[in-house]
Design a protein around this nucleic acid. Sequence first.
DNA 1: AAGAGGCCCTGATAGC
DNA 2: TGCTATCAGGGCCTCT
Length: 287
Amino acid sequence: MPELPEVEIIKQSLNKKIKGKIIKKVLVKNRNLRFKIPYNFEQFIRKKKIKKVSRFSKYLILIFEDNTGCMIHLGMTGTIHLLKKNKTKTITNTSFYNTLFLPEKHNHIEIKFNKLKLIYNDPRRFGYILLIKNNKDLKKKFSHFGPEPFFSSFNINYIYKYFRNKKKNIKNFLLDQKFVSGIGNIYASEILFLCKINPTKKAKKLSLNDCKKIIYYSRLVLKKAIEKGGSSIRDFKNLSGNLGSFQKDFNVYQRENLNCLKYSCSGIIKKKIISNRSSFFCNICQK
DNA sequence: AAGAGGCCCTGATAGC
DNA sequence: TGCTATCAGGGCCTCT
């Protein structure tokens, strides 16, 4: 799935394209996403005007003029496409699998505006959609989420206290959205590499200085990834059809058996399955 | 209560 | 060419 940076890129592009537009028609072709799309979904969002497109963690949030809304989680393979009506060619899209043309299969939802059509495509159907009744409802949906790395509440005190007596390894915690929101499997490996922390290290063994580094590098990695338009593995594109380029900056992800890129380190990047997810790290400089 | 593991799905790729 | 196994940017649910 897109992690926080990729969702942020989609959010920014969507804001430019659909802010202020009114939803004319909604078509659900397949309700069976991770959770069933509510049966009142079409009725709920029809005729609503987009106030803005927002984001929290890896969730896209359409906010309407009446302060109701709609949360979209893209799962592993969810993509959003915007088409200009009455044209066969995709003018804008975000896609992992198709680069130039809109895929025919797995277009589960179509949201039609006056001249634009927004399509939600998701082969694995791990994504889902939730309706939001009001601002309070929205806050409630995210009440059990930890802070994003950028928040001031993601500080040394919070992390150090959180890790006391925790037996899980640090990699697990970076992926745990209750601890910190928005980091996924790619950026977790990249952050730990820069921190020089081994992904299997138990959280409670981390020093204050380790916590400090986790804050610093989480912010740095996500910020840089956003600046570079996200990571375009499997052809992720933003809404203007441009590839992100952060994948060129990967130090460890998908670099198994290659040399460590840290200056003067003779280590080799290893791949290890931790809690069913691949982790990449240097066997020498990550302690 | 925290942690480990299974599972929801389709598609791409590697290996035989 | 065609089969099977493995792996994918996530996270919920169940069991211990």
